[in-house]
């Protein structure tokens, strides 16, 4: 038996999901972070974040069309993590690393938290 593995398929699907997001096609939730709004697909959010998984698997919350995050969450940090969810690319800037990491802890994105820890360790000579 043979199987053909399309090695680019996962990234091609993600690229298309990101295009759908940028055109606001079938996005089904608005995430409110302080005063900023981010449109996204619930399925992508819950596939990447433990917090969103818990929210959208709750039968009382899964139909919500808007979710407000803790006001302590930095919108810039959230924007970077949302971009990561849809692109696999995490933009780590030293000036934003703490807010990215704290937002990743809040969103329960454990592997991103680990990556932030490693980034902090390697950029801090002490």
């Amino acid at each position: 038996d043979s199987c053909i593995q399309f090695t680019r398929h996962a990234s091609d699907v993600l690229l298309n999901l990101n295009r759908l997001r940028s055109r606001d096609i079938l996005t089904d939730v608005t995430i409110l972070v302080n005063r900023q709004q981010f449109r996204a697909h619930k399925t992508v959010l819950m596939a990447c974040s433990g917090l969103f998984y818990t929210i959208f698997t709750d039968s009382h919350k899964c139909n919500l069309s808007a979710i407000s995050l803790d006001p302590k969450v930095d919108p810039e940090g959230f924007a970077i993590l949302l971009e990561f969810m849809y692109t696999s690319r995490l933009t780590l800037k030293e000036s934003l690393i703490m807010s990215i990491m704290n937002t990743a802890i809040y969103l329960q994105m454990d592997h991103v938290v680990d990556t932030c820890h490693r980034f902090i360790k390697t950029s801090d000579p002490s």
Binding site: D1, S2, T7, D12, N16, L20, S22, R23
Partner: peptide, 21 residues
């Protein structure tokens, strides 16, 4: 897929949704 002969296809797998119409 153990024991299955897997052939790698490196090209694009699906159509590309345009950035904007």
């Amino acid at each position: 897929y153990e024991g299955v002969n897997t052939i790698k296809e490196m090209g694009r797998s699906i159509h590309e949704i345009p950035r904007q119409d």
